[in-house]
Simulated scan of single mutants.
Amino acid sequence: MITDTQKTVETALLIRKPARDVYEALIDPDQTSKFWFSHGSGRLDEHQTVTWNWDMYGVSTGVKVLALVPEEKISFAWGNEGMETTVEWTLTPIDGKGTFLQITEHGINGTDDEVLGKIKDSTGGFVLVLAGLKAWLEHGIRLNLVGDRFPPEIAGQKH
């Protein structure tokens, strides 16, 4: 049996840009669409709900902003009703190096197989998001990592 403390996704990466740049890229859908989703219905604003769309997969989700601390923390709930999880993005400035961005997702429920699948999918997804964000902010490159994860030519195949 998987314990509650094990039902957590954690990943992190150093982004060699100031916290204000990283924070802005995460709350502004015009920037976030360069490395994660296709488009969002608006900027993240505390206690508001926005919609994020991944047109390449025909998927969207509601994102309820729980807390915003400029240049420090973003917290939101997302997912299907009854299967919502909470995601926290923590930004830690490192003098002369940039911002260490940590992502934690918790509140994952279901059978052990469902929990393991969600942890696997979220971990892989967030790693791609971090890599895409790093490439975008540090080099202005759109890697299209999320879109290329499941190309249509292999859709329906087991991953």
Results as ranks from 00 to 15, higher is better:
50 V>A: 05
137 L>C: 09
115 V>M: 03
27 I>G: 02
98 G>T: 07
47 H>M: 13
98 G>I: 11
95 D>P: 10
91 L>I: 09
133 L>A: 06
38 S>C: 04
114 E>V: 06
33 S>G: 07
55 D>W: 06
94 I>T: 13
114 E>R: 03
62 G>Y: 07
98 G>V: 10
114 E>M: 05
33 S>F: 03
137 L>G: 00
147 G>K: 00
116 L>W: 09
47 H>S: 11
43 R>H: 10
62 G>S: 10
47 H>A: 13
144 N>R: 00
90 T>M: 09
53 N>Y: 14
18 P>F: 12
136 W>N: 05
124 G>T: 08
39 H>W: 13
19 A>C: 06
31 Q>P: 05
121 D>H: 09
29 P>D: 10
24 E>T: 15
27 I>L: 10
73 K>R: 13
44 L>H: 07
90 T>E: 04
144 N>A: 09
85 T>I: 08
82 G>I: 14
32 T>S: 12
125 G>E: 07
48 Q>G: 00
118 K>I: 11
77 A>T: 14
106 H>V: 05
52 W>V: 11
118 K>R: 11
118 K>D: 08
18 P>C: 02
46 E>D: 10
140 G>V: 13
106 H>G: 04
58 G>P: 01
133 L>N: 02
46 E>H: 05
39 H>G: 01
120 K>D: 14
141 I>G: 02
14 L>Y: 00
87 V>F: 06
129 V>T: 09
30 D>G: 11
137 L>S: 06
32 T>P: 06
145 L>C: 04
127 V>D: 11
32 T>E: 04
124 G>V: 07
16 R>W: 06
30 D>Y: 05
103 I>G: 01
103 I>D: 00
55 D>Y: 02
111 T>S: 10
129 V>N: 08
37 F>P: 07
109 N>F: 11
147 G>P: 04
23 Y>P: 05
68 L>C: 02
81 E>I: 14
142 R>A: 15
52 W>Q: 01
53 N>I: 10
50 V>P: 10
124 G>D: 09
25 A>I: 02
102 Q>C: 12
16 R>K: 13
25 A>D: 01
92 T>V: 12
39 H>I: 05
131 A>W: 11
115 V>T: 05
22 V>E: 03
38 S>R: 00
24 E>I: 09
16 R>D: 13
52 W>I: 13
25 A>P: 05
25 A>N: 04
36 W>G: 00
115 V>I: 15
30 D>W: 03
56 M>Y: 11
60 S>W: 12
27 I>M: 04
120 K>F: 12
79 G>R: 02
135 A>N: 12
85 T>A: 02
58 G>V: 10
123 T>Q: 06
82 G>T: 12
57 Y>N: 08
50 V>D: 01
130 L>N: 04
70 P>H: 07
128 L>A: 06
52 W>R: 03
117 G>D: 15
115 V>N: 03
115 V>S: 00
79 G>S: 05
123 T>W: 02
